[in-house]
């Protein structure tokens, strides 16, 4: 029997499902960073807002990177549905904590796909995902740096403004 599916698509079919889930996850992340940007803007935290606008755009780039990888290799990428996005936060600290949690969730998900790639001997996809492993380390680091700063300086009075200034360099 010919291997028609393999001739058509270079990615393992179960891995393709996971990549489609990852596409949806990146889209969700992009949407929730947009909500965070909006909250920061409303609270006159201009630099933090700018930071989250950039993050949102980056997540969309991640999504497109995976989307194209799936299609370029003969698979079928699915345009994701975006779930409900939270818009209410109690503080800048909460915003960055949620952002870090979200990045950790993404890291775990990427690691899980790589684990499955090894099981299925899909080394092409594993290789593709290595870029994301590095990227996730950097993204977690970014959020953590701001949280460290908040812990160090507090957010009372002028401190909040100073932190917002410093987010520029994060």
């Amino acid at each position: 029997m010919k291997d028609l599916v393999r001739q058509k698509i270079s990615i393992n079919i179960d891995i393709m499902d996971l990549l489609n889930e990852q596409i949806a996850m990146e889209a969700d992340a992009s949407a929730s960073y947009l909500a965070m940007a909006s909250w920061c803007d409303q609270h006159a935290l201009t630099h933090s807002a700018e930071f989250f606008y950039d993050q949102s755009a980056e997540e969309r780039e991640h999504m497109m990177k995976i989307f194209r990888f799936v299609n370029d290799n003969g698979g079928a990428a699915l345009s994701p549905q975006i779930g409900k996005v939270a818009h209410n936060y109690s503080s800048l600290q909460e915003v960055f904590e949620l952002a870090l949690d979200q990045e950790i969730k993404v890291t775990k998900s990427i690691n899980n796909i790589i684990q499955q790639c090894r099981k299925k001997a899909d080394f092409g996809t594993e290789n593709f995902l290595q870029w994301f492993v590095q990227e996730q380390l950097e993204e977690e680091q970014k959020m953590r740096r701001v949280l460290d700063l908040i812990e160090l300086m507090g957010t009372d009075g002028i401190a909040l403004r100073l932190i917002d200034e410093r987010v520029k360099e994060a």
Partner: peptide, 14 residues
């Protein structure tokens, strides 16, 4: 076709 067969699988799974 192969694509259509894969698409049907995705449709059912979703």
């Amino acid at each position: 076709s192969c694509c259509q067969f894969i698409a049907l699988r995705q449709k059912l799974n979703s």
